[in-house]
């Protein structure tokens, strides 16, 4: 699979919760090796779209394909293989509260049943090092951790099997600016080492500008723009204008002029 090929294809997707319509006719292709940022106001269906891509929701109409295969109606082994190739960082971390930090990260590795405990122990230590968590925290329970640590440990768990596709739901929400910058650096570093495709839903312009290769904008149940950041900014839509060209947006874009032009 070369760069530029679709790893996830969304085709004519409709999402409805009862009478409430979330998406209308969404078409999207996540290319291999890119970082796709999903942007939209609160309640515009960023997370819902991500859940559709993960197969957590069933589309009311339309299709979602992962590597050319539909997500629903696969046999168990195939589905498991597809799942192992995805890592997900949930908005609130979704760490298992009954398991320690160590066991949370070790769980997906143990589920493979091909790794022995010795390799698992080394891998867990490596992942903890990667997200910059001291090993003395390994035995702690999620309830004892701060929000920033939960996010980082959840990222370590999402990366446990070195997936090729990573979903980040609001990766920097709830983090202080320094932590948020460190988090962005962390993800940039990982992209350097591994051929990683990332789908990211975010509110945070800084994160969006720093990480994403392409941006998809969701508003009024539809995808109103898709393209590189420069292309998207030029689009004429009230949401895009207020999001990128408002006070905050201008400031962020000003600060990141280098990235945009480079």
């Amino acid at each position: 699979m070369a760069d530029g090929e679709c790893i996830i294809e969304v085709e004519g997707l409709y999402t409805r919760f009862g009478s409430h319509v979330v998406h209308e006719d969404i078409n999207l292709c996540v290319r291999h090796g890119e970082v796709l940022g999903l942007v939209g106001g609160s309640g515009s269906g960023k997370t819902a779209l991500m859940r559709q891509m993960l197969g957590l929701e069933t589309p009311a109409q339309g299709k979602v394909r992962f590597s050319g295969l539909p997500l629903h109606g696969q046999d168990r082994a195939k589905l498991q293989y597809m799942r192992n190739r995805c890592g997900v960082l949930f908005q609130k971390g979704a760490l298992f509260s009954a398991l320690s930090v160590y066991d949370n990260i070790a769980l997906p590795m143990r589920e493979l049943r091909t790794l022995d405990e010795d390799i698992i122990r080394r891998l867990v230590m490596l992942k903890l090092k990667m997200v910059d968590i001291d090993t003395r925290h390994a035995t702690k329970m999620p309830a004892e951790l701060s929000g920033g640590m939960i996010k980082r440990i959840a990222l370590a768990r999402a990366m446990a099997l070195d997936p090729e596709l990573l979903f980040l739901d609001e990766p920097t929400a709830g983090l202080d600016p320094q932590l948020s910058d460190a988090f962005v650096k962390l993800i940039q570093g990982m992209r350097h080492e591994l051929p990683l495709t990332i789908v990211m839903a975010t509110h945070d312009l800084d994160t969006l500008v720093a990480l994403s290769d392409r941006v998809a904008v969701l508003a009024e149940q539809r995808m109103v723009a898709l393209g590189t950041l420069q292309e998207v900014i030029k689009a004429k839509h009230p949401f895009i204008t207020s999001f990128f060209c408002g006070e905050r947006g201008k400031r962020t874009l000003e600060n990141n002029r280098g990235i945009l032009q480079g």
């Binding site: 080394r122 230590m125 490596l126 090092k129 001291d134 090993t135 390994a138 035995t139 080492e193």
Partner: peptide, 12 residues
């Protein structure tokens, strides 16, 4: 990868 492994902390 191996640079990171060299710096890997000892498991508790």
């Amino acid at each position: 990868l191996f640079n990171r492994l060299e710096k890997m902390p000892a498991p508790p």
